[in-house]
Every structure is written in C-alpha cells, then in structure tokens.
C-alpha cells in the first residue's frame, strides 16, 4: 500500500515538475505515463476527468490528479496525487521567491522558455489528434468539437458554460434518437 502511494506521489511529482503552463499542458505527459506506461485508465476516461475538472471548482491539474489518484487507491491515493503535483511547485517557487526574484528577466531563461513553448504546442497538437481519434466518433461529435474550438477562440464565453452546454447537447441527442443507443459506447 505504502509502496503504491509512493508510486502515485512520485508519478505526479514528475508531472508537476515538467508541466509548463496550465492543466491542459499536462495532458501529453499524463497520457504517456498513465495511459501508455502504467495502463491505469484509457484516453476516454482522461478526457472525462478533464471535462469534469473544467466544470468543478479548483485547479484543473490538481482535479485531474485527484480523480486519477482516487481511482487507483481511494482517498490516500487522491491525497498522494494532489501532494505530488503540488510539491515541485512549492520547492521551485519558494527558491525563486527567496533567491531569484528576477528569474523571468534572465535572457537564457527567456530563450529556453520560448523554445519549450514551441515544443509544448507540438505536444498538445499530438495529444489533440489522438483524443480526436478516440473521442470524436460521428458528425455531431465533430460539430461539437469545432463549435467549442471556435467559440473559445473568438468569444469570451466561459469554458464552464461551453462544457455544460455540450453535456446537454449530448443528452438531448441521445434521448431524441434512441435507435443509436445500441451502437453508442
């Protein structure tokens, strides 16, 4: 038990330590570690956790970590995952706050970060393609995906509203066309 909690803690510690940006930037590493290396859940489940996390209070990265930790080892797993994802930040930010107040002005740091952000876009694109394959299965799914993409790029509608609406669209579509229920997953 303790050994497994340690595994969960260290796994999310690594994710917290190498995620640049918000919760969504964590997805490529999450997918690699959780889906491909450890086989805890499949990609659809991770998508479900992201959807729920977006609509719940709290930080998306922490919420997703807690969902996964809880699924593995109940409450102790949830706590281990949350602490894991938070620990590296506490260490790094404390160092910066105390010793390196102007680290963001350092030219080497800026160049490295500019390079990293180019790479992060490529990683996110790779993740999106794989999610598309798994989660978007019919014309309605494509319509939802592109509408949400356009709405979140060009309007200031809150993502929570977008997520809730999509859930309602899903429910409405399934209720209106019960013949599709057998084929749906």
């Amino acid at each position: 038990m303790l050994h497994e909690l340690m595994t969960i803690y260290l796994l999310f510690f690594r994710m917290g330590a190498v995620t640049f940006g918000g919760g969504y930037a964590m997805l490529p590493i999450l997918r690699r570690e959780i889906v491909e290396n450890h086989h805890w859940v499949d990609e659809e489940t991770i998508l479900d956790y992201y959807a729920l996390s977006q609509g719940l209070p709290g930080l998306i990265a922490v919420n997703v970590a807690v969902f996964l930790g809880y699924r593995q080892r109940r409450l102790p797993g949830a706590v281990a995952a949350a602490l894991g994802v938070a620990s590296p930040c506490i260490l790094i930010i404390s160092l910066i706050a105390v010793f390196l107040k102007n680290v963001q002005d350092n030219p080497y740091v800026q160049h490295a970060l500019a390079g990293i952000s180019v790479c992060v876009v490529a990683l996110i694109l790779d993740a999106v393609l794989s999610l598309w394959k798994k989660g978007v299965k019919d014309p309605l799914g494509m319509t939802i995906c592109f509408s949400i993409l356009a709405l979140s790029l060009f309007t200031r509608i809150s993502p929570i509203l977008l997520v809730v609406t999509s859930a309602l669209v899903g429910i409405a579509a399934k209720v209106r066309r019960p013949s599709e229920e057998e084929t749906a997953v």
Binding site: G21, G22, Y24, A25, L27, E44, L47, D48, Y50, A51, Q54, A114, S117, V118, V120, V121, I124, L125, A127, V128, L131, W132, K134, G135, V136, G141, M142, I144, C145, F146, S147, I148, L149, S152, L153, P159, L162, V163, S166, A167, L168, V169, G170, I171, A173, K174, V175, A184, V185
Partner: peptide
C-alpha cells in the same frame, strides 16, 4: 450520464485545441 459524456469528449478536445492555439498566438 453516458450521453452527457458523449457530448463532453468532443467539447474537451476542442477546448484543448484552443489552449494549444492560444500558445501559438503568443509564441509563433
């Protein structure tokens, strides 16, 4: 619940794509 997730999965895919494009706008 399953029907709700059927709508949520493509929506989150779209949100993540938008997050990626947001980074593109700033960096490239």
């Amino acid at each position: 619940v399953d029907a709700a997730f059927y709508g949520l999965r493509p929506a989150v895919t779209g949100l993540i794509a938008a997050a990626g494009i947001g980074v593109v706008k700033v960096t490239m």
